[in-house]
């Protein structure tokens, strides 16, 4: 079996072919990480906001993928399957962090703003910080949908496979999220 010699990301078929070979499993997994680590990182980062937390969640995500990849049956796209794992890991992380705050939403938003300002890998302006704070106040599902649509520009059909929700429900969630964020900015005199 020949390994790819250029830096062009490998196709899913090629990655899975390597992963199913005992001899090339580890190389196959490195190919998988090379192909998807940036997309998965940014998806997670926008959910958990700080680089340090995103790094933890991403590494846990890859460990879960590593352990489960041979059970991947190809019923969905590899990308969709990994997105789902990353999303679940990020949600679990956010839920455990939320339990640490006793917690009115304002407390949670305040804690997030503090963490964001302390994160050396965030250099956004006041509006960008406000957007993160507004997103943190959304219900979990709306926040996910907003992230996937607003930042990842994921089509609704693909999002439907990741979140196991109908396209109509996803469009409604996005619309509600947009309206709530707009309302948040209006209340804070940015509009």
């Amino acid at each position: 079996m020949q390994l790819p010699v250029n830096h062009k990301p490998a196709t899913d078929d090629k990655i899975l072919e390597f992963l199913r070979s005992e001899k090339n499993f580890e190389r196959g997994f490195r190919m998988l990480m090379d192909a998807y680590k940036e997309r998965l990182y940014w998806h997670i980062r926008r959910l958990v906001t700080t680089h340090e937390d995103a790094d933890d969640v991403l590494q846990n995500t890859f460990i879960k993928i590593y352990r489960g990849i041979l059970q991947f049956e190809g019923k969905s796209k590899l990308y969709t399957w990994m997105y789902r794992i990353a999303t679940n890991e990020a949600i679990t992380f956010l839920q455990s962090r939320a339990r640490q705050h006793t917690s009115a939403i304002d407390d949670l938003a305040g804690a997030l703003a503090t963490r964001l300002r302390a994160d050396e890998w965030f250099d956004g302006d006041a509006l960008q910080e406000q957007l993160q704070t507004a997103m943190a106040q959304l219900p979990e599902k709306q926040r996910l949908v907003f992230n996937l649509r607003y930042y990842d520009e994921m089509p609704y059909e693909e999002m439907s496979a990741v979140l196991d929700t109908s396209v109509g429900a996803l469009k409604a969630s996005f619309h509600h999220a947009v309206k709530k964020i707009e309302g948040f900015f209006r209340e804070n005199d940015h509009l």
């Binding site: 990182y41 680089h51 957007l131």
Partner: peptide, 9 residues
């Protein structure tokens, strides 16, 4: 259009 202000090492 301004991006999200997030960077990585």
């Amino acid at each position: 259009q301004k991006g999200d202000g997030m960077r990585v090492p």
